[in-house]
């Protein structure tokens, strides 16, 4: 459904952020997109959403295709209209607007009438019952977990076919992360919405995704089905924090040999 071909992005005319990445998100799938800070994951999402021209970024090479159509030159509002929404990093709810108004803003591009809106509005509150108790509260005053739910609910209201979530687990308690990931999985299964999940929490992301991409320094270094990625030695050590049994050492031997990443699949 979404296909990125050899995308290269330059910021401020000189900073090469994405060095030719290719990525694919099929219909109704959950794709994990992993990598450390500064790898270029958020830049990829911003490129898809069409935000680069507004922050002095530029696509210098490659294409982004959505359902066979090249969309990398489109305005952000056209991208949303096509059904690609993004839940930005750090939630970015409109703090001065109430929870209800935030949900309404999410439906900004839709022109299919009040009834359809009402239906989706009720549905989104069914997914996030915690929000229905706080509808009249300013979004800036609800908890971090509720803000994350609100940000997802807001993106859902545009009735997307592809939802891109930028680190939904950021700064949340483990229990809440599990809850939010459950809801993401539910939305994916019930609404047939594709999910592109950018995460640092690799374990959680790979657990619900079918396929994963791992990015470092503006390049995709490894990709494959989630279960395969989870067995990969490099992923285990550097993303999941596990080491194979025979290598396991006690903390007494602090100075230990550090394995080089090889990124062999």
């Amino acid at each position: 459904m979404l296909r990125i071909n050899n995308l290269e992005v330059v910021y401020n005319d000189i900073i090469l952020v994405l060095r030719g990445i290719s990525l694919e998100a099929p219909e109704a799938a959950i794709i994990a997109f992993l990598g450390s800070n500064g790898a270029g994951k958020s830049t990829t999402l911003r490129a898809i959403s069409g935000l680069l021209p507004y922050e002095d970024g530029e696509i210098t090479k490659g294409t982004i295709e959505y359902r066979g159509e090249a969309v990398h030159t489109f305005d952000p509002q056209r991208i949303v209209g096509l059904g690609i929404t993004q839940v930005p990093e750090g939630r970015r709810v409109f703090a001065e607007l109430t929870v209800e108004e935030n949900i309404r803003v999410g439906a900004h591009t839709r022109r299919d009438g009040k009834e359809e809106f009402r239906r989706d509005y009720d549905r989104v509150l069914a997914y996030f019952p915690a929000l229905s108790r706080r509808l009249r509260v300013q979004a800036g005053f609800v908890s971090g977990g509720e803000q994350q739910m609100l940000a997802i609910a807001r993106a859902f209201m545009a009735r997307p076919s592809l939802m891109m979530l930028d680190e939904p687990s950021l700064g949340l308690a483990p229990l809440l992360v599990t809850e939010i990931f459950d809801i993401i999985r539910k939305i994916n299964a019930e609404e047939r919405v594709s999910v592109l999940l950018v995460e640092q929490n690799a374990l959680m992301a790979l657990a619900i995704a079918e396929y994963g991409y791992i990015m470092e320094n503006g390049k995709i270094v490894l990709d494959g089905p989630s279960h395969k990625l989870m067995e990969n030695e490099d992923v285990k050590e550097f993303y999941l924090g596990m080491k194979s049994d025979k290598e396991r050492k006690s903390f007494a031997e602090v100075k230990h040999y550090k394995r080089r990443k090889r990124w062999l699949s």
């Binding site: 935000l51 991208i79 949303v80 929404t85 993004q86 970015r92 001065e96 803003v105």
Partner: peptide, 23 residues
């Protein structure tokens, strides 16, 4: 109104307003 709401959203956070599909 929808227009009023989109103006308030833009006033608060322009780049997120883009993500909502606001012109």
């Amino acid at each position: 109104s929808r227009a009023g709401l989109s103006m308030r959203a833009t006033a608060e956070d322009t780049s997120t307003a883009f993500l909502m599909g606001i012109n």
